[in-house]
Write a protein that binds this DNA or RNA. Structure first.
Length: 660
RNA sequence: GCCCUCGUAGCUCAGGGGAUAGAGCAUCGGUUUCCUAAACCGGUGGUCGCAGGUUCGAAUCCUGCCGGGGGUACCA
């Protein structure tokens, strides 16, 4: 039941009687949840602008709207406050009846959308050739949550993992395999060995790139220094106030720039020095001085159908895929289809031909480019060496998705740094093959470390995803064990139970911490914060759930029997009513989540629900209630709370534990 | 240079036209013969980066500026 939507619909009816039709829709949208419980449960703010429009006192308009508003029994007679706020309070009898219906409803009265759409969601998309790392959390977790929510509210949704399984990384491990492989290690643990090879090849390439970069940086340092000196020489006594101000600003900029370039040079210098101190590595690097081009050659051979490279690719894929699968298994993430870059390879030439044929692409500096008016830089679809790019694959992918699923929307859950790419891609797609389709870049910010910079290990390496999960689980385990050592409760948990709780709590902490932040913001990664027992964390939500469930265990209540018993809900205490009202808002929360594809709307709802439950739990004894009627009613509230939390967490991709 | 983003309490973050701007942490104080204290209740703490503008009403929308991050022709 979406109370808000129904109230808006009714308000629309009332508005039609007194306002011009063109103005009616946005005015009806001005019904919202109340800002403050003192104002009731919902409020309508449309009387003020409408009063302005009709040149009538807003309070009069409000009064007329109230008179014409039929809340269909949902609310008490509305009250008018302040300049013309219309405050709506849910009728307790109606509220009770709604929840009573939820007791027997597996969907908790969430009704499927009236007009289902078809969505394709593109998320996670790791590179197969290298281990998944911290950067994959957000896309995977946000994408999975959106997938679940959209599907739950009744849309047709296809999740597609667009794997990076065809790019330069494969050239790198093929090169590594051919030159550096430890055969027994490869036979023993192929993924570990391939990942070692990837890192080794990457390290050598980085070393050579660094050596190429160093002189460039040196000239930059010199140029920056000179720019500073030049500004210092400017005769400031001849300048007026504004020009002086500008000069100071320019100086500061120049100095900042000089400092940052010098810093870069320093960092690179010491990094290269460190590499050069490693005699064995340098020896290896010297023997593979042409590695940069050699890797590209291996990649090109793979793409051209070279028998050996293709065989190696086929050999590498299964173990790499199963390593990735293992991570998804722990995260509880699944995909309907997994169509990586390799799948689209045979379709790229056709895409490029089509673009050229339709006059959308033309050659420039040897590359085939699409120039769109809006953008300063062209979109390159074929390099001058004939190779295709990211953009080409994305275009082929869009076309395939259009042909295969005829989606109404395609969502790309990809980090914000690629927004320019998507702007171009969507602009082109609209004039090319898929006008009218909602193409959305669901962008998200960066996971930061304590220093406010992208989260890295102490040595500056990217953090592997598996290690990250392990760490969270081991910290969760410590918390579980510590809690067990504390106040004895007579319900000791055995080793297996604790291990299971730690796995669930640890991993859900990471997922929830990610989902609870606005996706556009960067956020600081902190095990301590995400595993905290207070505040908006998965641990707290899990605990809230376990605490509800504990009542049923302690009271030896048969929940199914309770639900079918016909026991009546009765709302008496303010805490009961507040909880009830919150329980009935699940559908509103889901709608908000989907409106701009923001899972933090759902976590916020769940946290508020847990909060309402906590107050209820403190103030309203359940098992020791005064009467059997009150007890049953409260048990029903507990059951609905537990189910709503479980359902909500499940929609976020987070399982629950019955006991902690 | 241009484009995109962010700037809210000491810290980490919500709130994205409505009434007195919220939460958690930190800090100060209170609550356990009582269903999980891994909890709850209360206090302290804010010129919502700055300046204009639109509006009956701006943290929220617009413009400019300041500051952080990101992107900007053959990587993905």
């Amino acid at each position: 039941m979406n109370v808000l939507a129904r109230l808006r619909r009714q308000m629309l009816v009332a508005l039609r009687e007194i306002a011009p039709e063109a103005e009616v829709a946005p005015l009806a949208e001005m019904v919202t949840t109340a800002q403050d419980a003192r104002f009731g449960d919902y409020q309508a703010n449309c009387a003020m602008p409408l009063g302005k429009l009709l040149k009538r006192p807003p309070r009069d308009v409000a009064a007329e709207l109230v008179a014409k508003l039929d809340t269909q029994g949902m609310c008490h007679p509305a009250e008018i406050a302040g300049p013309g706020f219309i405050n709506l309070k849910l009728n307790d009898a109606w509220l009770t009846a709604q929840l009573q219906a939820a007791v027997a409803d597996p969907r908790l009265t969430v009704t499927p959308v009236e007009q289902p759409r078809t969505y394709v969601i593109d998320y996670s998309a790791p590179n197969v050739a290298k281990p998944m790392h911290v950067g994959h959390i957000r896309s995977t977790v946000i994408g999975d949550a959106l997938y679940r929510v959209l599907k739950f509210i009744g849309h047709r949704v296809i999740s597609d993992n667009h794997l990076g399984d065809w790019g330069t990384q494969f050239g790198m491990i093929i090169y590594g395999y051919k030159h550096f492989r430890d055969e027994s290690a490869y036979q023993d643990k192929p993924v570990d060995e391939l990942s070692r090879l990837y890192r080794l090849v990457h390290r050598i390439i980085a070393y050579y790139e660094g050596r190429d970069e160093l002189p460039i940086l040196e000239t930059k340092v010199a140029a920056a220094k000179e720019a500073c000196e030049k500004l210092d020489r400017v005769a400031s006594d001849k300048l007026d106030k504004d020009a002086l101000k500008k000069l100071d600003k320019d100086k500061k900029r120049a100095q900042d720039n000089a400092a940052s370039v010098a810093g870069e040079w320093n960092a690179l210098q010491s990094k290269l020095a460190a590499e050069e101190a490693d005699a064995a590595f340098i020896d290896l690097a010297r023997k593979h001085a042409t590695i940069q081009t050699a890797v590209l050659t291996e990649t090109a051979k793979l793409h051209a159908g070279d028998a050996e490279n293709h065989r190696l690719w086929q050999e590498f894929m299964p173990p790499c895929l199963s390593a990735i699968e293992e991570v998804y298994r722990r995260l509880g993430v699944t995909f309907d289809v997994t169509l990586g870059e390799s799948f689209y390879h045979p379709r790229l030439a056709e895409v490029v031909d089509d673009l050229a044929k339709r006059g959308l692409a033309r050659e420039s500096d040897g590359a085939l480019c699409v120039f769109l008016e809006k953008f300063a830089a062209p979109m390159i679809v074929r390099k001058k060496d004939g190779a295709f790019l990211y953009a080409t694959t994305d275009l082929a992918t869009i076309r395939y998705r259009m042909q295969t699923w005829q989606p109404d929307a395609i969502l790309y859950v990809v980090d914000h740094r690629q927004s320019f790419h998507f702007e171009q891609l969507f602009a082109l797609a609209q004039i090319w093959d898929c006008a009218g389709v909602e193409l959305r870049h669901i962008s998200f910010g960066t996971v930061l470390g304590k220093d406010g910079k992208p989260y890295k290990t102490r040595s500056g390496d990217t953090v592997g995803l598996t290690g990250l999960l392990d760490e969270a689980v081991s910290r969760a385990r410590k918390i579980v064990d510590d809690a067990e050592k504390g106040a004895p409760r007579g319900q000791e948990l055995n080793h297996e139970a604790r291990a299971h709780i730690a796995e669930v709590v640890g991993i859900s902490a990471i997922k929830y911490a990610d989902l609870t932040h606005d996706r556009n913001s960067d956020y600081e990664f902190s095990y301590d914060k995400m595993l905290a027992m207070y505040g908006n964390t998965a641990t707290y939500m899990q605990y809230a759930y376990a605490r509800v469930r504990s009542i049923f265990r302690r009271g030896e209540i048969d929940v199914d029997a309770l639900r079918q018993s016909g026991a009546k809900l009765v709302l008496v205490e303010p805490a009961e009513r507040a909880l009830a009202r919150q329980l009935l808002r699940l559908e509103e929360a889901l709608e908000q989540t989907v409106a701009d594809y923001r899972p933090n709307m759902l976590t916020a709802y769940l946290f508020d629900l847990a909060d309402a439950y906590s107050t209820f739990f403190e103030q309203c004894p359940v098992l020791k209630a005064d009467s059997p009627t009150t007890r049953d009613s409260r048990l029903l509230l507990c059951d609905l709370t537990a189910r709503t939390i479980r359902q909500g967490l499940e929609l976020l991709g987070i399982p629950v534990v019955e006991q902690m």
